[in-house]
Computed example of a mutant assay.
Amino acid sequence: MFNMISYIIFLTVSSYITVDVGRRCFQAGKSYLEYLIHDQEMCLTINRILLGCYYLLNLGYIAVNLAFWDRVSSVEEMIAVTAIRIGNIVLILCVLHYINIFTLYFLRKKLILK
């Protein structure tokens, strides 16, 4: 029973975080990409591709994460395991976000130098 409750909490919170962060990054990323690339149509295409890859990667990680969930036998363990797994999702989102920003920044610098 504790496993089902922790699954539901984990799926609800992590899916909400993934979708909300993706939507916010998509909106804010438009101006950042336009600043870097100066081609509005190309920026929109890149932004959509990044959003699709972002959703696939994160929702896939969430699904795989459920497969390796150990049996939870108490409320305290349920809270601890769920919090750790949600924290891992948030950390992965942060790392992916900064990798994208730095990659686009360095690609732009490389394009400018040519």
Rank of each mutant, 00 (worst) to 15 (best):
Met1Ala: 12
Phe2His: 05
Phe2Asp: 02
Asn3Glu: 14
Asn3Thr: 06
Met4Asp: 15
Met4Arg: 14
Ile5Val: 15
Ser6Asn: 02
Ser6Tyr: 01
Tyr7Gln: 11
Ile9His: 04
Leu11His: 04
Thr12Val: 08
Thr12Met: 11
Val13Ile: 15
Val13Arg: 03
Val13Ser: 03
Ser14Ile: 00
Tyr16Asp: 08
Tyr16Cys: 08
Ile17Ala: 08
Ile17Val: 12
Thr18Leu: 06
Val19Ile: 15
Asp20Glu: 14
Gly22Arg: 01
Cys25Tyr: 07
Phe26Arg: 03
Phe26Tyr: 12
Ala28Met: 15
Gly29His: 01
Gly29Arg: 00
Lys30Phe: 11
Ser31Val: 12
Tyr32Thr: 11
Tyr32Asp: 06
Tyr32Trp: 11
Tyr32Leu: 15
Tyr32Gln: 09
Leu33Gly: 01
Leu33Thr: 02
Glu34Pro: 01
Leu36Tyr: 11
Ile37His: 02
His38Lys: 14
His38Asp: 13
Glu41Ser: 15
Met42Asn: 12
Cys43Tyr: 02
Cys43Ser: 13
Thr45His: 15
Ile46Asp: 07
Ile46Leu: 13
Ile49Ser: 07
Ile49Arg: 07
Leu51Ala: 05
Leu51Trp: 04
Tyr54Thr: 03
Tyr55Val: 06
Leu56Asn: 06
Leu57Trp: 02
Asn58His: 09
Asn58Ile: 01
Asn58Thr: 03
Leu59Ser: 09
Leu59Ala: 05
Leu59Cys: 07
Leu59Ile: 10
Gly60Thr: 05
Tyr61Ile: 09
Ile62Gln: 04
Ala63Gln: 03
Val64Gly: 11
Val64Leu: 15
Val64Trp: 11
Leu66His: 09
Leu66Met: 11
Ala67Phe: 12
Phe68His: 08
Val72Ser: 00
Ser73Gln: 08
Ser73Asp: 13
Glu76Asn: 12
Met78Ser: 09
Ile79Gly: 01
Ile79Met: 03
Ala80Gln: 08
Ala80Thr: 10
Ile84Thr: 06
Arg85Ile: 00
Ile86Asp: 00
Gly87Val: 05
Ile89Lys: 01
Val90Ile: 14
Val90Lys: 03
Ile92Val: 10
Leu93Tyr: 02
Leu93Asn: 00
Leu93Met: 09
Cys94Arg: 07
Val95Ile: 14
Val95Thr: 10
Leu96Val: 03
Leu96Met: 11
His97Lys: 10
Tyr98Met: 05
Asn100Glu: 13
Asn100Arg: 07
Ile101Arg: 04
Phe102Pro: 01
Phe102Ser: 12
Thr103Gln: 08
Leu104Pro: 00
Leu104Arg: 04
Tyr105Ala: 09
Leu107Thr: 04
Arg108Gly: 05
Lys110Phe: 15
Lys110Leu: 14
Lys110Asp: 13
Leu111Asn: 07
Ile112Arg: 10
Ile112Ala: 08
Ile112Tyr: 11
Leu113Cys: 09
Leu113Met: 10
Leu113Arg: 14
Leu113Val: 13
Leu113Phe: 08
